[in-house]
Nucleic acid binder design. Structure first.
Lengths: 182, 182
DNA sequence: TGGGGAATTATGGGTGTCAATGGGAAATTA
DNA sequence: TAATTTCCCATTGACACCCATAATTCCCCA
């Protein structure tokens, strides 16, 4: 996977024309797609992929919200807008319900707001770097409305296992089905 | 076959008037049809067939979404709209469900947004070029709501085998039928 | 019906711009 | 003062944009 290559995440930075990306939100929906691997410098700074930045920069807080994944050695990340939507959804529950509690405790309490420096970089809190076991590179993995940040090798492994599991599953079928192939 | 000729995909462009493609049906539905073979220049650029471009250019992101095919040495491609529909469908699942995970990992993470340059060309990431074993030409193969990108010879081979299978099964069916009738 | 000629597409190449990255100085905090 | 964060500048390598040229196709008109 040159995608995981050290040198450059991949052509990714260029995959999306700069100008194009910004107007992408015109339709309202902007997705985080693809995987980018960037370096962590000795000050702990990481460039957020330009493509992701254009999505994040347009939101009410121009930065990233991050919190540890419950199930994997990875960091969940999204724009503030997504968290607000989640929160609004949860608020429909009784404020003292288990759902409300679980959400507040497991997401809100552990999440951090990270803003960009003038070059579009962020610094991950140590807790999170450790949770994901990252040393000197970080993989930004698009998941649609959100993305994750992984130690690149760990993600590789996880991805292979997922493929193994899903090889002949319905995922691929679904793509074809809706493709209106027949 | 003439369809696979190097020079020009074939007269296919004329099968369907250029303007016709985009407004196809007026119902909003536009299909990717036919096969076109174009060159890959030394910078890795490939012209997307004009006919496909008119469909893609009308979508919320004017470019192509590509990701490796699970089952073939080919690249799956579509417009952003198709991915958004898929994603929206998946979002109905619990964000931490296996379904969601498998989709995100196997499609979203491996996909790339490619925008057109001013001449309507794209540059495929190395990972994908390698996955499809492409060197200096690319075959764009219409599949309705989506299309695929192949190394032309590989597609030829695959196509012939498919035909052979189809013919064999038909023959065997006919044999069965007539055998039964007799 | 059969030319031209205009328009569109495919393709090649040069170059300015931007993303990613690294390092240092100023500002802030302990 | 030492340590950390913030801001600014420099470098490099891709790539986005520009222009030029073929190769077709489309369209109009004789």
């Amino acid at each position: 996977m040159s995608q995981m290559s050290p040198k450059r995440a991949d052509g990714s930075a260029s995959d999306l024309g700069t100008g194009t990306a910004s107007e992408f939100g015109g339709s309202g929906l902007a997705l985080f797609l693809s995987t980018f691997v960037n370096r962590i410098d000795r000050k702990g700074r990481i460039s957020v992929p330009a493509q992701f930045r254009t999505v994040l920069g347009a939101q009410s807080f121009p930065g990233v919200i991050v919190f540890p994944s419950f199930v994997a050695p990875a960091i969940e990340a999204s724009g503030i807008d997504h968290i607000e939507r989640l929160s609004a959804g949860i608020d429909q529950f009784d404020p003292f319900s288990d759902e409300h509690d679980a959400f507040a405790i497991s997401i809100l309490a552990d999440s951090h707001q990270l803003s960009f420096d003038s070059e579009g970089r962020i610094v991950l809190p140590d807790v999170l770097r450790e949770h994901a076991g990252m040393s000197d590179r970080a993989a930004f993995v698009g998941r649609g409305a959100t993305f994750q940040i992984w130690e690149p090798e760990a993600f590789r492994t996880c991805q292979e296992e997922a493929r193994k599991r899903a090889r002949d599953s319905r995922i691929s079928l679904r793509f074809r089905d809706s493709a209106g192939e027949r």
